[in-house]
Every structure is written in C-alpha cells, then in structure tokens.
Design a protein around this nucleic acid. Structure first.
Lengths: 242, 242
DNA sequence: TGTACATCAGTGAACGCGCGTTCACTGATGTAC
DNA sequence: TGTACATCAGTGAACGCGCGTTCACTGATGTAC
C-alpha cells in the first residue's frame, strides 16, 4: 500500500497529464475531425515524444473512447445543471431548458457533438463504457415526464394502433426506465429524443442552411411543439383539428 | 466539331471508366468511410497507376463531391420511383411509401447515407452542385402535402404562437416551395423532414441499439404519427387529449 | 481515302509528407526494511 | 532516517506502412486537310 501523500505526488501529475492529452486531442478534433485524430500530432503539440503517450493510453482507439465518454458526460453534466435550476413544478420550463442546454452545448462543442451523434468513426467499435453516459440525457428527459405525471401535468395521449412488436419494445423499455408512463408516452419520448438530436444535427451539419436563419428561435418553436405532443401541456389544453 | 461516332468511341470509354472509379470509391467507402477515401487504393483496386485517376478527377475532393451528388440523386431516384407507384389520391400511402423508401435506401447504402446525412467530412466544403439534389426529397414530401391540400385531405393545424423570426423564415420558405400551404404546415414539414432523417440516423448509428429491436415496425409506427401531425388524416379525424 | 499533326489516356518514378506502434534505454520517483 | 531495490515516465531511433500530387514520357486515338 502506498502512502496517500506520495501516491498523490506522482498520481496527480499523471492525472493532470492525462487531462492535458485529452485537451490537446479535443483541440485536434476541431481542426481535423475524429477520423484524423493523430497521436503524433498530439505529442507534437505537447512537446513530448509520441511514444510517451503510450504510458497514458494503450492505443489511439482507447484515447478515442475516452474522448467519447467525456463528451457524453460533458453534455449530460451541462444539461443536468441547467435543468436543476428550474423549479420542479414547471415541467414545460424544465423541458425547454433541458433541450436548449443540449443545443447550446452542441453549438459550443460541435466536433465533440459530431463525435457522439454524428456518423460513427469507421473501424472504431464503441465499447460498453459508453452506454451509461449515453443514456443520461434520455433519462433526464424521461424524468421530466414522470414528474409531470406525478404532478398531474401530463395529458393522456391518443391511442393510435400500436403493432405488437412496437408494443413489446416500448413496454420493455418502459418497464426498465419508467414503469409509470403509458406506452404511448414511451413511444413519444423515443421520438422526442430523436427529434431533439435530429434538429440539432440538421442545424450543425448544414441541412437547413439558407432555409432557417434564426436557428435559436426555430429550435425553441419546434421544441415547444414537441413538448405539447408529449402531453406536457400548461393546463391540459385540448388540441383541435379541422 | 468532332464526329458524333468517333466522339462516342473515346468518350464512351471515358464515361465508363469514370463510373468504374466511382464504383470502386463507393466500395471503399464501405470499408473505411469517407475520411479515409484514398485515390491510391482506388487505383490499386482498378489495376492502374494512381496518377491516371487525375485524368478523371482533378483531386480527391472532386471525387468526393461526385460521390455526394450521386448519393443524393440515388436516394431521391429510388424514393421518387417508389412514390410514383402509389395512386395519387392516397396521400397517406404516398407519405408512408416515400419515407420507407428513404429508410430502405439508407439501410442498403449505409455509408453513402452517412456521407450525406452524417457528420460532414472534415476539411471538405460542399460545393453548390449538391444543393439541388439535396432538395429533391424534401420537395417530394412537400408535394404530397400540396396534393393533399388540393384533394381536401389535409387538416388545418392548430395555430400555436409563432415568434416573428420563425414566421419570417417559414413564410420565405413557403413562398419558395409551397405558397399554398399554411405556415403551420411549412413548419411541421421542416420538422417532419428532420424526424425522418433523425429516426433513420438513430437506427443506423446505433443510438437505439438494445432499445428498439423491430426497427421497421417502429419506424412505420412513428412515421404514421408524423403523417397524422402533418394533417394527413384519413378523413380528418379529430385528435383528443385528456 | 491517306497523311501530318494534335489531343488524350495512362505510366512509373519521385517529392515530401504523415501515421501507429515497438523497443532498448536512462533517469527520476516511490517503497520496504 | 537511510539505503537498496522496484516501478514508472519519458526518450529517440527505427519499422513498415500509407497518402495526394506532380512531372516528363510513350503510345494510342481522333481531326483537318
């Protein structure tokens, strides 16, 4: 057993350097993207031999995994922090603050966003370590729905016909993460999660270029609509159609 | 002016070889992704000197552009062909066939899909040539809505408050592609387009791994919901909420 | 139809660069007694 | 507290590979008269 003081001495430097490597790697991401992430370039930027990096990460892919996990944790942290600042009863406010926080993190870190929500890096297989961090935001969104239900601020959703395989997937998912929500809500929540990331990706990847100009307002508008369709109505306003 | 016969002789071979190069490039995409697309590897596969490729494409990026344009055209062709097979009055059928065709093309050509709808290739700037092909599917989707309107099979949408900048973007877009549709419908259509690509990307990029198992049924279920929210109701069924 | 000339396709060597990873090594830090 | 030893961090050279692009060239195809 090492003494805690001396362990800290060397181990602290090690932790710091590990961070510095990841920071340099993130800076590199900005310039050339994940596929071109280069250990040699990182070493060059840090002024050390490229072989030294192998004391910290056994291979390029392990560094990539660390970056991916960090990115998931970072966006989830930022989002959870924002969401925690809204009073619990204001479920629509919580929804809007949460989705805005995801978008804002994405705008501030577009390459890390692309790393986790863009096309997978070819030849790279995501290990299990990424599963839990990746689930944090969806779970946060679902927790808002669950609170809304408890607070009686969640409308019932229309029961569209749901084919058996869909039902079985959604019920299994519901049992795991939100046994109190209806299958309609679970289905809607999966869609909402995809809508959130879909909208941000469209903006970031340029698919709305010259179509939408005020992205922030448009995002807000659309996400308010999503909230409504999730049943997060102010006072359970009835929806009409002609 | 060359004789048309002799022109064809050499020019036809040229056209064929250009195709072969793109085919080889597409095969390479599958293995290593767009970022790693290599002229030398293509030349190797084709049994020619790498320098020979420069007679066909002035640079790697030009080849990439050709692949991107081809991919947009291919998915739009496949989709338009499928949509054309449904009788015109069946607007819901047309919607479902169209979105399914996009998904099926994506499943059959995941790397070309990632090329156009995944994260942008770093350091590569998409030229104007890609704009028109990229618009084909959204325009097809909108044409279904317009036909539905003409056939009186399009419900009016609830008028949620629409901030001025959103309205101005959506009205400009509407004026350009569908002057007959309401701004609510235009807004919904943008969302629907993003929902379609968002869902496919989630499936393809593994974000629903172990969550959804029957992707086809789930996609159908969700896209039916999208159709309903677009106002493509069978007989203008009223929606209720508790 | 035949011939002189111009264009085009493809070659192979070269330039100058980058990469991930391994390995034997030195010197510093930490551990056990 | 002091010393012998083990662990760890970092070096620099090397292996073996890949890449995009240029260039002077040969030989075939197409054009103009």
């Amino acid at each position: 057993m090492p003494m805690s003081a001396s362990l800290t001495a060397r181990a602290r430097i090690r932790a710091e350097l590990t961070q510095e490597i990841k920071d340099a790697a993130r800076r590199q991401l900005v310039e050339s993207g994940a596929a071109a992430l280069s250990l040699r370039a990182i070493a060059r930027e840090m002024g050390m031999a490229s072989s030294a990096l192998y004391r910290y990460f056994p291979s390029r892919d392990d560094l990539l995994t660390a970056l991916i996990v960090d990115a998931y944790e970072a966006v989830a942290d930022a989002t959870a922090r924002a969401e925690a600042g809204v009073r619990r009863r204001d479920v629509i406010g919580r929804w809007m603050v949460t989705v805005r926080a995801v978008r804002e993190w994405a705008l501030a870190h577009p390459h890390e966003y692309a790393l986790i929500f863009g096309s997978p890096v070819p030849g790279y297989q995501a290990p299990r370590d990424t599963i839990d961090p990746a689930a944090r935001i969806p779970l946060l969104l679902v927790s808002i729905l669950r609170d809304a239900l408890k607070l009686k601020r969640l409308s019932t959703l229309e029961k569209r016909p749901m084919p058996r395989p869909v039902r079985s997937d959604l019920e299994a998912l519901g049992a795991q993460i939100a046994p109190d929500l209806s299958r309609q809500h679970i289905g809607r929540a999966v869609m909402a999660w995809s809508q959130l990331i879909g909208m941000i990706s469209f903006e970031l990847f340029g698919h709305l270029h010259n179509v939408i100009h005020d992205y922030a307002e448009h995002f807000d508008y659309q996400m308010r609509g999503v909230a409504e369709e999730l049943g997060l109505g102010e006072a359970t306003k009835a929806r009409v159609s002609a």
